[in-house]
Design a protein around this nucleic acid. Structure first.
Lengths: 321, 321
DNA sequence: TTGTACGCGTTATCAG
DNA sequence: CTGATAACGCGTACAA
């Protein structure tokens, strides 16, 4: 095993000098520096990073906790990876599958100092448990959360959903079916948005059921079949996300229901599927959220952080409304 | 900072005893063990993992190098994550975007012992460069490669593509357009498969161009527009992957070309998109490939590894042929 | 500008 | 069964 002492011995200097050369300190004789670099090259030496981490008390690794790869989480993770790399941090990804124990692994690695910080896209454990880990290192979340220990980069979906509803109204749709998700605390915001929307335009309560816990393509397909059986049909369906909207759209097309002729569909997220299927949807800048998350972590680690982005929703009008 | 010495002092024992308790060694007096555990609990102590890694010469972190998240790489990465976690290893993901420098980061972390091993889905650097890192730790790849230093878990796409072509033939299609990708070394296998196929059934060379470097949805859309302009149209299109097939299918549907009435489409990979769009395609077990990759790494790390899976292609017949 | 010596926190050997 | 103590490899006061 070739270590710093070996290099020092061969170069005829002390380990301190070798260390200084490695870390680009000034005040090293040019000739000695050359000699040291020469030996390092000859022996193909690299500092052992466990030793460096131990000494510095930092690993420059940030953990990312996510339930799985979804069409909405992937862009966030990707953007986070890139910004972290630019700042010399590496990313360790934890797929928890919503399993508390797997999430604990990441939390425990923060505690044992294998991770400098953590960003939590979807949590499995209760917030108080996660908060109790904040004392071991900065944690930031993507979900809606108000906490003094855990900052969040969430966006209030009230605005985004309202954008979606206003679009439907402008297009002439009045009998709207809401399809809600269940993740995090977004659903209440959306319900509030619809209530305000219905009040603003004095829409009667038509008695459509509120559909909850809908988040997959398969869920969308089910709703399409449900729609077909109804006598009183909604004119438009506002979906919790693009996957549900995609399932809806493709199932409708299978059985010959025309979109948007017979019924309009609007999604949420603006993921790849929405682009592919020409779905009208609501876009939000998850890449900027990721960069904000990283900036916050960097700041809490006591390093100079880039400024935060402002975050805004945007309606993407395509051919399903 | 609470460390092992602190615990030892407070429990009135030596650091050696504390270490023994932590690592579940036998031969520790029950009473002392109890006392030590009590202090550990009180002080909320955890061993510093950098110190442990330094001492043990192992981090139990495995790097995964991938160009980006694609519909084909994601299932592999996910499966690899799961199997690694089951064996007490953590995974660090490197998104290289096909940038040699970014790939180097991962390679260098193997060299500096921050990583115990590496699996390389898509490489950016030339193979000789990657091979030169094999001396620092086990590396295994997903791509086709014959090397004594870097084992591979690739599957010979000759068989998979032949399965695809035989299916088209059985369905009565004769005028087949091949759409090739460019990743790795799979394309030559596919070309060989088509040559053998054409020879077996004595198909004339119809003079369709060989399309290369096609791998995205947008590529598929382009090909669809190309198809429409031709006077001599192919009856079936065999695609390099499901994304191309999906672009083809959706663009055809937009302009009213009937699938499979006017032209048949077959994909490759069996990803989520293929399921959604009812694409006939070829499935291969990337999850088993991932588990094999991990097993090989484990074996090379001198640990007991699970047996390797046999790998087989499978034709998934849906509604696009 | 350089070297000595110590500390980072842990594990393992070895003598008792 | 237990405790000193020597590594592991690096960075850095401090003294020179």
């Amino acid at each position: 095993m070739t270590n710093i002492r070996e290099i020092a011995r061969l170069a005829g200097v002390s380990t301190a000098t070798v260390s200084r050369v490695i870390n680009d300190h000034p005040y090293v004789n040019a000739e000695k520096r050359r000699k040291v670099l020469e030996i390092i090259r000859q022996l193909d030496y690299v500092p052992n990073s466990s030793a460096t981490s131990l000494k510095k008390g930092m690993t420059r690794i940030v953990g990312v906790v996510s339930a799985s790869y979804t069409t909405s989480s992937t862009p966030f993770i990707q953007a986070f990876n890139i910004i972290a790399q630019q700042h010399g941090f590496n990313v360790m990804l934890f797929l928890t599958d919503n399993d508390c124990e797997k999430e604990r692994i990441a939390l425990e690695m923060l505690r044992s100092k294998q991770l400098d910080a953590l960003v939590c896209l979807h949590r499995a454990n209760e917030w108080p448990i996660i908060e109790s880990y904040a004392k071991y290192g900065p944690i930031v979340t993507w979900q809606r959360l108000v906490s003094e220990h855990i900052p969040s980069v969430f966006m209030d979906q009230y605005q985004g959903y309202m954008l979606s509803l206003e679009h439907l109204y402008a297009r002439g749709y009045r009998r709207i079916l809401n399809v809600y998700s269940s993740r995090g605390l977004n659903t209440p915001q959306r319900i509030r948005a619809y209530d305000d929307f219905a009040k603003k335009y004095t829409l009667d309560d038509i008695g459509f059921p509120d559909l909850h816990h809908m988040m997959s393509i398969a869920d969308g397909e089910h709703i399409a079949r449900w729609w077909i059986e109804q006598s009183q049909k909604p004119e438009a369906i506002a979906c919790s996300n693009d996957d549900v909207a995609a399932g809806l759209l493709t199932e409708f097309k299978r059985v010959g229901v025309s979109i948007p002729g017979d019924v309009a569909i609007i999604g949420f997220d603006n993921n790849d599927l929405a682009r592919l299927l020409d779905l009208t949807t609501v876009h939000y800048p998850s890449d900027k959220q990721a960069e904000n998350a990283f900036a916050i972590l960097l700041d809490r680690l006591g390093q100079k952080a880039p400024p935060l982005h402002a975050l805004e929703f945007e309606l993407i009008e395509r051919r399903s409304t």
